[in-house]
Structure formats: structure tokens, C-alpha cells
């Protein structure tokens, strides 16, 4: 194990070394925030989830088993679980910020149509069931394999595939219906 590897830092963290925690956060906090925001579509809630995830890392570092998973897989699982828990709280609603079409500079109808389509997809993502959004995020935006994504969500590969398929189908339907002028 490399002296500064994530796994060696976790050993130090489990012994109470806050500097090791700081170093691990320097490496992975940005990733945790972005993943949480991808799932939650809410920046403030994402910041809170990412911080809580590292508090969990601090408290439970001794439970990490490097023979079973990489630290990043463990971190993904913590962040996704916390984010999904957050979505179950009363009052949570993802922000449809992607609905805003930022500018209408005269760079052609095609570019404008593309921006509108992207904005539409953003709102479609926000409207997806959280677990489908999490699966699409892990597979397409985080680049995890089916097996890694399933591990991060703590579900079977079959369940992960099902979430991916349903999420993609729902997004296509959303875009198709919305471009025809109706919301599915």
C-alpha cells in the first residue's frame, strides 16, 4: 500500500488523524459534492450531504475493508445513500435550474435548438425518480461500470440495469413529449 494512498489515509483516520482526513477531503470533496448535486439537483443540499459523507468516513474509517472495495466505491455508496435519504425528506424538490436557457446569442437556429434540448433534458432529469437519476449519473457522468454502479447503490446488477433502462426510456419520452408541446 502506498504511503499516501486513500487506503493508508483511512488507516490514519481510523486512528484519529484529522490531517489525514483533510488530505482525503482535498482529493475527493469536489467529487462528492458534484455527485450529490447530480443526484439532488440542489447545490445547498449537495454541500450538506458531501460534508456529512466525510463525517461518516471519519466515524467509520475502521470499518473500511480495502480487500472488498476501493475507497472511491465506498465514498460513492455513502454519498448516494445520503442523497437518496435526503430526497425522501418532506419538502425536498429538485431545482429545475436547467430550464433556464442562458443566452440567445445569434449563433444559429441549430445551436439554439440544442440549448433548448439540453435545458429540456435538465428538467427531465430533475423530474426523474431519484434512483433512476442516480443510476444514470453513476453510469454516464461518473463513468462507472454496471457492477461498480450497482455496488455504489447497494443493489444487484440486474436492479441497476433496470434503473438505467427505465431512466433512459423516461428521459427519451420526456423529450419526445415536451418537444411535441406536452409534458408526459
Amino acid at each position: 500500500m502506498h504511503a499516501d494512498s486513500d487506503e493508508s489515509l483511512l488507516k490514519k483516520i481510523s486512528a484519529g488523524d484529522q490531517r489525514a482526513l483533510r488530505l482525503l477531503m482535498d482529493r475527493h470533496m469536489a467529487r462528492a459534492i458534484r455527485l450529490a448535486e447530480r443526484v439532488l439537483r440542489d447545490a445547498a443540499a449537495a454541500d450538506d450531504v458531501a460534508q456529512e459523507a466525510f463525517v461518516r468516513v471519519w466515524k467509520h474509517a475502521s470499518r473500511f475493508d480495502e480487500d472488498k472495495a476501493q475507497f472511491t466505491t465506498w465514498l460513492y455508496r455513502i454519498v448516494v445513500n445520503l442523497a437518496l435519504d435526503r430526497t425522501r425528506r418532506p419538502g425536498h424538490a429538485p431545482l429545475e435550474d436547467a430550464l433556464e436557457v442562458a443566452d440567445t446569442a445569434p449563433d444559429g437556429e441549430e445551436a439554439l435548438a440544442r440549448r433548448q434540448r439540453v435545458a429540456l433534458l435538465g428538467s427531465g432529469l430533475a423530474a426523474l425518480p431519484e434512483r433512476q437519476r442516480a443510476a444514470l449519473t453513476l453510469f454516464h457522468l461518473e463513468g462507472l461500470s454496471g457492477r461498480e454502479g450497482a455496488a455504489a447503490m447497494n443493489v444487484s446488477e440486474k436492479s441497476f440495469e433496470s434503473l438505467l433502462g427505465r431512466g433512459r426510456t423516461a428521459l427519451r419520452a420526456w423529450i419526445s413529449a415536451s418537444t411535441k408541446g406536452r409534458t408526459p
Binding site: 458534484r34 447530480r38 439540453v118 433534458l121 454516464h140 457522468l141
Partner: peptide, 17 residues
């Protein structure tokens, strides 16, 4: 069609913090 969807998905991604 799916490639377009995935490109749009990447374009609709949240910004890096």
C-alpha cells in the same frame, strides 16, 4: 438517437464545484 441523448445528458450536467 441514444448518442444524442447522452451528449445532451453530459451538456446538462451540473458544474464542477
Amino acid at each position: 438517437d441514444l448518442a444524442d441523448l447522452e451528449a445532451d445528458l453530459a451538456a446538462a450536467d451540473v458544474d464542477a464545484p
